[in-house]
Amino acid sequence: MITKKINKKDIRKLLGTWNQECSVIVPTREQGIVEMAGWDNKDISFLDWYRNTVVPPKACFLPQSEVMISFQKKENGLKIEVPQDEHKQIIFGIRPCDARAVAIIDQVFADTYDDYYYSSKRRNTLLIGLSCSNPYDSCFCTSTDVNPTESEDVDLMFMDIGDEYVIEEITSGGKALLNTSSMIKKATKADINKAKEVRAASVDKLKKKVDTKDVDRKLQSCFNDIDYWEQVSAKCISCGICTFLCPTCFCFDINDEMIKKHGARYRGWDSCSFRSYTKMPMENPREEKWRRVRQRVCHKFEFYPMNLGINACTGCGRCIRLCPVNWDITQVIAGLPGEISVHSGK
């Protein structure tokens, strides 16, 4: 529920206050590439140009490569160190689709199994959501149960209503961030009405739509339809763009490196699109391209719902927008063959 608001002019001050306590991460553009990176304590121009990042915010918790342990050869053996990282950070400007994605990866790394490296970063991070009113033509979040202006997956949710942002306080951690600040005002009824209008207009802007109802059952029934998978995978070139830049893909690989007596164990992104995926234990069970393509679709829309009750696609559209061959997952979902057998629960 919207309770507070802040004037846009005060954002720099607000971020400045936060930046004294912990590091503030904002959308940053370098060489045309937008990603979440440390704020320089002055530039808030991103509020004008920012639509979404190229590298998804998952990189803040699951960096592309990170040191798990470092080791050094000494005369009397190895000196081993595990990096300790407990510094607090605030990510400002995460979009609802990406916030949902973080919640989805949380289930993998921080819920059922507690991954030290992921959760030490995650539990020290507050997410400040920013509503999205300028989606790309590849975005289809409304088809995956995400509202571009609303999120329960953040600590605070900011929504642009013109000269001001209205704020929803989602968690106590988020609430506490606003307590000390004099720039935060109470939202009026008029603000809330304005927000309603913006919300409706923003949702309306999402033109790309795909019916994801029953898609898990459809996928189940056409899992062995090799013709279909061969046909839709034909143009895929098996690069890692869609998976690396997917906000919910989390596959990783672990490698030891040693150069000149210094070494480290690294964890880095891996991708099921690669032909060499999982070659390290033995072989890749998905040698043919269509199997790898099928895996990606099924993982998002069949296996996740089966295991965790949620689609692992949040409709951010990165995989469509950045694909070298315009492989479009919505077309593949929409084109799934076969009738869904109607399960009558009645």
Partner: peptide, 30 residues
Amino acid sequence: IRCYACRQVCPACFCERCFVEESQPRWVSP
């Protein structure tokens, strides 16, 4: 980000197995 899109999109890169994926010996760190 080592997505290998440059390699995958390149018609000249037709090797069955690329040197980056060799593990014995490992030429390039993954």
